[in-house]
Nucleic acid binder design. Structure first.
Lengths: 119, 119
DNA sequence: ACCTCACATAAAAACATGCTTATATAGACA
DNA sequence: TGTCTATATAAGCATGTTTTTATGTGAGGT
């Protein structure tokens, strides 16, 4: 491994540290793997992850601060989705995550998937 | 951002967490950026990073455990270099790090670069 | 054998992180 | 306005991480 060295614009080191700190947690990697399937709101993530709502909210805040996800408010729900704009390497990074589509199917089967005007 | 989802084999989540934890530290990102230029030993990293030798050694251990670097012993020195084998996304990841070649030039100018049989 | 240099490891202190419980905010609806 | 649901935030606790200081190991040279 000898030739990387900038075909991309170097990013701010502190921002990169925040990004990798955000990625360095199993729960947050799962959340990102789930968001690879589709946007989700906190109340959908809670039963999938088996965590309390505040715990999930705090993870979402970290991911948002790291510019890994963006949010969209719809009524009382806040939908989170991947933000692919900040890091050129993100796609390669997410590509190695496991496919968690089955978790979302599971959620639907339990009747816990939120239905909004868009689906 | 909607279409990643496995062109690569999914990796073990716990190993990925270790990898990103290792990346989520400014000192270690600097070390990796330096190793993008060339292999270095601990005693060269110490003055560049301005840290104590044990602190640098422990960072190297973390990077090694995360399979981000490999080591090569030569006499009393241990040379560390990037290990590009474990993560398919590593090249894209390292590409956004700043170029720290000037730090190595600086080291040479101060006469602190180790000279071994290979250079 | 002894000394020196490079590096690793261990224990303790300082600091950061993640989860829980409790509480606040914000929108929907009566 | 009041209530319900979804979400965010804050404080406290437990756990993990990073750094320091002290010490151990191993190779090279005398």
């Amino acid at each position: 491994m000898t030739e990387p060295q900038q075909q991309a614009q170097p990013l701010d080191l502190d921002q990169l540290v925040d990004c990798y700190k955000a990625l360095g947690d199993k729960t947050r990697l799962k959340i990102l793997a789930l968001l690879c399937c589709e946007e989700l709101c906190v109340c959908e993530l809670v039963p999938i992850l088996g965590m309390t709502q505040p715990a999930v909210s705090q993870h979402m805040r970290k991911l948002k601060q790291a510019k890994l996800v963006k949010e969209r408010r719809e009524g009382q729900w806040v939908y989170y989705s991947l933000d692919g704009t900040a890091y050129p390497f993100l796609q390669a990074t997410l590509a190695v995550l496991p496919n968690l589509q089955h978790e979302i199917e599971n959620l639907k089967a339990q009747g816990l998937k939120v239905i909004n005007c868009c689906n």
